[in-house]
Design a protein around this nucleic acid. Structure first.
Length: 425
RNA sequence: GGAACGGUGGCCGAGUGGCUUAAGGCAACGGUUUGCUAAACCGUCAUACGGUUGGAAACUCCGUAUCGAGGGUUCGAAUCCCUCCCGUUCCGCCA
């Protein structure tokens, strides 16, 4: 949702920002609806005011035993007029809400311009790919040769875009998740949450999955949704609350499965584990005061980077341009990890500052000490990191061509019973 | 799945058709008193929206809506009726 008052004061600012996402001017339609709604509301309120007044008079007259028929007739006439105005007002208000909730967030001033992912800007790199341009087997080959990845059986029981992991690789993924959670909770100050994986409509609206991205979601027969990311639950934990200054910063993280239809990605990344209907992710969410969100965004991105550093995986950090950034985000850093078989960097984390667009939808506000009014909080979310893709990266970057095994990264050894290498067993 | 009881402001909680402008309390904020803290006393204190005066803004004044949601009855609904949602407890089933 957007701040209608601010938009009214400065529509050019909004259209300019949205234009950087490739949108045509939206404010003329918004302002027209807004104006129409306000004039209907003003008219309606005048009638309501008279109705209330007349009702009081009727009460007074009747209590003295007088005849209030004239007043009662007047109210009856008013009610006819009100019914049609109410209907019109309801319709216009709904149109306005629908329109506003389908328009993405404003961009941060330092989000770069650009039309597509080709215009994203690299901000830093860490680590060096071991043998760039060398032809190496991908994780599918590696995993199947080890007998530890089984896409065929997964397809038999669930369909495409699922996998069955076994033995050492199953344990490796579990180790990755444990390591990430421990790092975020013990070193980065995040509180571990084990949340519900099914949520209701309001929650999905709050973090902007609804109404626009309904087709990407798995719904249940009883009207709930499988979470596409833990962000949805973690962020909505503070929905409809009025927080105090002392509550900030709120930092929570969770390790959950994520479910996505990948409706718009037909034919993309069909091989392997890069893009699945179900995958694990460790997610970080921060809730902060507006003036702190930029610094928190840097901090969160560094927390995600720290995971890859500890895993000793080569990666780069990019900032997404206006044409590639997500709906709810003002500014997004993506972390891309080196994938040897593809000879390129692939997204493994996305850290976004959502400003107040989610908090407006969730009605999450806070009150400053001594202040009378409430303000909307800022929300941020970031993967820390996508566990399934981290598994792919470890398998390929730690692959041993000598025997087809996978070396265990140092930080994972404690979680793998101290073994050095995953080999065919 | 069945039954009972519930859902009222930041929180607790009263309220069975007009005297509610939602009592009272807690918390918070401002003030008085005070060596400091505490206490006492006085005052302020829901949210959203519209109009209005002035404006950079805070804000002033008037109004409307909101007591889980949506309908209905009524001149008038937190209150009565209907439907739905959610919570708690008990029973049944179940890991």
């Amino acid at each position: 949702m957007h701040d209608l008052k601010a938009l009214r004061d400065n529509p050019e600012y909004y259209d300019k920002s949205w234009a950087r996402r490739g949108l045509s001017p939206q404010t003329p339609a918004i302002l027209a609806l807004d104006e129409s709604r306000r004039s209907l509301q003003t008219e309606l309120q005048a009638l309501q005011s008279r109705r209330n007044e007349a009702s009081k008079e009727i009460g007074a007259v009747k209590s003295k035993g007088g005849d209030a028929q004239g007043l009662m007739d007047e109210v009856a006439t008013l009610k006819d007029k009100m019914a049609s105005l109410e209907e019109q007002e309801r319709k216009v208000a709904e149109e306005l809400t629908d329109l506003l909730s389908s328009i993405p967030n404003l961009l941060a001033d330092d989000t770069p311009d650009g039309a597509s992912e080709d215009d994203n800007v690299e901000v830093r790199r860490h680590g060096e790919p071991k043998n760039p341009n060398a032809s190496v087997p991908d994780h599918v080959e590696i995993g199947e040769a080890l007998g530890m990845l089984d896409f065929e059986t997964a397809a038999k029981v669930a369909g495409t875009r699922f996998v069955i992991e076994k033995a050492g690789i199953a344990r490796l993924e579990r180790a990755l998740a444990q390591f990430m959670l421990d790092t975020h909770t013990m070193e980065h100050g995040y509180t571990e949450i084990n949340p519900p994986l099914l949520v209701n409509d309001d929650v999905m609206y709050g973090t902007t999955q609804l109404p626009k991205f309904r087709d990407d979601q798995f719904g249940t027969t009883d009207g709930r949704w499988l979470i596409p990311t833990a962000e949805v639950v973690l962020t909505n934990m503070v929905r409809e609350e009025i927080l105090e200054e002392g509550d900030f910063p709120i930092r929570v993280c969770a390790y959950t499965p994520c479910f996505r239809k990948e409706a718009g990605s037909a034919g993309k990344d069909t091989r392997g584990m890069i893009r699945q209907h179900q995958f694990y992710k460790v997610e970080m969410v921060s809730i902060v005061k507006p003036e702190d969100s930029e610094a928190e965004h840097q901090r969160m991105t560094e927390c995600a980077e720290n995971i890859l550093k500890k895993l000793e995986l080569p990666f780069r950090t990019i900032v997404l341009c206006g044409g590639d950034i997500g709906f709810a985000s003002r500014k997004t850093y993506d972390l891309e990890v080196w994938v040897p078989s593809q000879n390129k960097y692939r997204e493994i984390s996305s850290c976004s500052n959502c400003g107040d667009i989610q908090s407006r939808r969730m009605k999450t506000r806070f009150k400053r000490a001594g202040a009378k009014d409430t303000e909307f909080v800022h929300t941020l979310n970031g993967s820390g990191v996508a566990v399934g893709r981290a598994l792919v990266a470890v398998m390929e970057n730690y692959y041993d061509p000598q025997d087809g095994g996978i070396f265990v990264p140092n930080v994972l050894k404690p979680y793998m019973g101290g073994i050095e290498k995953i080999v065919k067993g």
